[in-house]
Structures are given as C-alpha cells and as structure tokens.
C-alpha cells in the first residue's frame, strides 16, 4: 500500500462503513437513489470545497467562499429575476466576477504579504455586505431556463436522479484532477504548500500561482452559487452562512493537510459525501436532532486531525531512519 494515499483510503473506508451501517439499519438507505441524492444535495458544497482544497494545499485558507455564494445568488436573482436578463448572459458575468474577486484577494495576499486568513475574512464581510445591499430580502428567480435546468437529467436504475448539478460537479471534479496532477500550475500549488521559500528558489512563479489559487476558489464559489440557485430558485444574502467552515471541514476530512503540501481532490469529494451521509442518516432516523450532524462532524474532525498528526510524525521518523 502506498503510504501517500493512506489518508485517502481511510476517508474512503469511512464513507463505505457509514453507508453500510445506514443500509443495515434502514430500508431504502442502501440504494442508488440515496447515493445520487448525496451528489445532488451537496453539489454546491462539493464544488466550493474543491476550490478550498487547492487553497489549503497551497498552505492558505479562504473564508470568503460562503459569502461569495450568497453574493452570486443575489446577483443572479437581481439580474435574472428583476432585470430580466437571460441566465446565459448572467452566468459568465458572475463567474468572471467571482474569479476576479478571488484574484484580487490573492494579489493582496502575495504583494502585501498579508495573512490569507485576514484578507479572506475581509473578503467575506465585503461580499456578504454587497449581497445585502443588492437586496436584503430573498429574490425569487423565475425563468424558463431554470425550469429547463431543473428538468435536465436522467434517471439511473433504482430511481436515482442525475441532474444538472451532479453533471456540473462531475465536470468540476474532472477539471480539478487534471489541474492538480496534469498541469504545471497544479505542481506549483503543491510546491507552494510544501515550502514557499524553496518553491521560489526552484523558480516557481509565486505571484501568478497565489493569484490563480484564490481566483480558482472565487470562480468555483461563484459556480457553487449558481448551482445553489438551481436548488433554491432564489438568491438570498443570508444564504450559505458559515459554509466556508463546512468546506474546510470537508477538505480536512478528505485527508488534506491543513498545513499544506498534501491532499487530493477526490478526498475532498468523499469528505463532502461523508458529511452528507451523516445528515442523511440523521434524517432517516427521524428522532435525532439535526444538530447531531454538527457534533459528529466535530468529532470526525478531531479524529482526522489526530490521524494526520500521527501520519506526519511517522513520515518524519521514516525520513530520519532512511
């Protein structure tokens, strides 16, 4: 077994274990339908968390993602619902806007040597504030395109609905894997998280890489905002409050080191699914308070951080002996 993938195996194993427990306990839990719904319901979180994965691998953090989702939603609501623009005109605009928003934060972090935590915290307040100014009420989106998107998709065996959200997520995952492992930028991102100083000395274009990382995260947050609006048919400035923390949790449960330098997109996807399946379990149970989701995720986070600590310590010992 390749030790680099240990945390990935643990995450994958945990998901299967949870799925198995649920299936044994409840009828209809172990079905393709439940699985498909996991993807549909969590697509926006997964898309955001994948952007977050790159940020964390590079050694940074992006707290603005939840607010960007809300801002994107409200912008879509105002532009489509109120101004009556066609979604296909609005989407490119908000996606570019999200990318630029992230790029600006990346540039501030790099050129002014600021902490990503503080810069993206500021970005979070800014985006949330802008969303509220655009509209402090939920803006309904009523457009034929949205109806078409909702109908787009196909049933797989077992009444499993694979819709637009899931397909977009699949595209994002594929793109992210290619970016991480088959592009130079991907290598640079891992390099930056490994040791920024060394990376610079090895000729990694640090400025370009940092800006790209936060631009990717901003772009994917905006995309998640669009997918979220497919889900809610509205834009609301208080949507996705605290979602940046869910995304970070998913990334960590997915096996990415918070200190940077190591992690996998697939791990993050499974991390999101684990969080989703806990929620599904609790709703199947029906008697448990939904806050149990948070408690279980909290415990899982502790367990995973402890595990990472152990794995890193073992890695270092291996180095000393080699």
């Amino acid at each position: 077994m390749n030790s680099r993938f240990t945390s990935l195996y643990v995450t994958g194993g945990l998901f299967m274990l949870l799925f198995l427990i649920g299936s044994l306990q409840f009828d209809h839990f172990g079905s393709t339908r439940v699985l498909a719904n996991l993807f549909t319901d969590n697509a926006f979180l997964a898309i955001t968390a994948i952007g977050m994965t790159f940020v964390i691998i590079s050694g940074g953090i992006d707290l603005s993602v939840g607010a960007v989702i809300a801002l994107t939603g409200v912008a879509c609501g105002v532009l489509i619902g109120e101004a009556g623009l066609h979604p296909l005109v609005v989407f490119p605009l908000v996606l570019i806007g999200g990318g630029l928003f992230g790029a600006t934060m990346g540039a501030l972090i790099h050129y002014y040597k600021l902490q990503p935590f503080i810069v993206t915290l500021a970005g979070m307040f800014l985006a949330r504030g802008l969303a509220t100014i655009l509209s402090d009420k939920s803006v309904p989106i009523d457009h034929s395109f949205y109806d078409a998107v909702a109908d787009f998709g196909t049933f797989l065996p077992g009444d499993a609905w694979v819709g637009a959200s899931t397909l977009i997520l699949a595209l994002v995952v594929a793109g992210a894997v290619v970016l991480a492992h088959y592009s130079r930028l991907g290598g640079y991102i891992y390099a930056l998280g490994g040791n920024a100083q060394s990376a610079r000395l090895m000729g990694v274009p640090v400025a370009r890489t940092t800006i790209s990382i936060y631009a990717i995260s901003g772009f994917l947050s905006a995309l998640a905002g669009i997918v979220y609006s497919f889900y809610t048919f509205s834009g609301y400035s208080l949507a996705a409050v605290g979602m940046e923390l869910d995304a970070i949790a998913a990334v960590v449960i997915g096996g990415t080191l918070l200190t940077g330098g190591s992690g996998y997109v697939i791990g993050t996807l499974i991390g999101v699914l684990i969080m989703g399946i806990i929620q599904t379990y609790i709703s199947f149970d029906g008697t448990l308070n939904s806050w149990w989701t948070k408690i279980v995720i909290g415990l899982l986070l502790f367990a995973f951080i402890a595990m990472q600590r152990l794995l890193t310590a073992r890695g270092n010992r291996g180095m000393a002996h080699a």
């Binding site: 290598g187 891992y190 390099a191 998280g193 490994g194 040791n195 100083q197 060394s198 990376a199 000395l201 090895m202 330098g261 190591s262 180095m319």
Partner: peptide
C-alpha cells in the same frame, strides 16, 4: 531547497 512533499521525479 527542494520540496519534501513532492515525489523525487516532480
């Protein structure tokens, strides 16, 4: 000044 987290080849 290399990157310990990347493979030798990388």
């Amino acid at each position: 000044n290399l990157l310990p987290n990347l493979s030798v080849a990388q």
